[in-house]
Design a binder for these strands. Structure first.
Length: 273
DNA sequence: AAACCTCCCTGGGGGC
DNA sequence: TGCCCCCAGGGAGGTT
């Protein structure tokens, strides 16, 4: 589900919601496991603490107290919501963090592909989930020269390459399709065949589409909600994703669909070469 | 080493 | 209405 813009939107929302810095009084976990079991020590570690910062690395949310960091990944269907502590639980709620001010922060995840882990303060980057991650796409390090070098002698399609979290993080199936459209590059093109000028266009396209999606609060296809329970609005701005047989917004020709390594791709065969 | 495939889950939609 | 199959925003682990 959530790619960088959705996770960033949730991050900003949680930062605001947690700015009250109320102490945790208790934590309740469901018996179901997410991708990994949730740590039993969560209640003991968080009780008496307040969250002092909320950060994002790739598609991971990092919630800091003074002595630990909660690592959260939303998988395909995860969401966080703030509710009154006396509000009834919903099906698929898996973690409920109760604060002294009468509110509760709740992790909800029907498919349970998400993650909820605990790291010692400052040690989250050592987690196996974070240690091999590539560059942040909105950082100054993300350059055409870097991508050209990394793509050398790679026989993967460009779409798979820009979705490889070891190379660049945060780009998933929707925004890969959208960025390639805006850069005029077909998703099947080999990464090693993309020249420097094309990389410059593609990097600009990735940064623009991620930035615009953040401004629109992300894309809601089905499950995604921000920390206030609101939907994203970027789905109205999509040029190709999910638009098979609909007219290209630029040239009018029908958008094409293909399956690449098990995932749907969408492109315009006139606008993308 | 690199590039596929499979699997972890629930639920919604389409075809019959 | 029901059943069955396919699909979905991710990503680690296994296989070739």
């Amino acid at each position: 589900m959530p790619e960088l813009p959705e996770v960033e939107t949730v991050c900003r929302g949680l930062r605001e919601q947690l700015s009250a810095k109320s102490e945790v009084v208790s934590v309740a976990l469901s018996r179901k496991k997410l991708r990994e079991p949730m740590p039993k020590s969560l209640a003991a570690k968080l009780s008496g603490q307040a969250f002092i910062a909320v950060r994002r690395r790739a598609k991971y949310l990092l919630l800091d107290t003074e002595n630990a960091t909660v690592i959260s990944h939303l998988g395909m269907s995860g969401s966080w919501r703030m509710a009154a502590t006396d509000e009834a639980a919903q099906k698929h709620d898996h973690c409920r963090i109760n604060f002294a001010d009468g509110r509760s922060l709740i992790y909800h995840d029907p498919r349970r592909f998400g993650l909820l882990l605990l790291a010692e303060l400052g040690a989250e980057q050592k987690s196996k989930w974070l240690k091999s991650l590539g560059l942040e796409p909105l950082s100054v390090d993300f350059t055409a020269a870097y991508m050209l070098q990394k793509a050398k002698r790679k026989s993967v399609a460009i779409k798979n390459f820009i979705m490889d979290q070891k190379i660049v993080v945060g780009v998933g199936n929707i925004y890969a399709a959208e960025a390639l459209f805006h850069a005029g590059i077909r998703p099947q093109k080999l990464a090693s065949r993309v020249d420097l000028a094309s990389w410059q266009r593609l990097i600009a396209a990735i940064q623009n589409v991620l930035g615009d999606a953040i401004k629109h609060g992300g894309t809601t296809l089905r499950d995604y909600r921000n920390a206030r329970g609101e939907l994203g609005e970027f789905q109205a701005e999509l040029f190709v994703y999910g638009r098979e047989n609909e007219n290209c917004k630029t040239c009018g020709s029908p958008i094409k669909w293909l399956k690449q390594t098990g995932r749907s791709s969408y492109f315009c065969k006139v606008c993308q070469k």
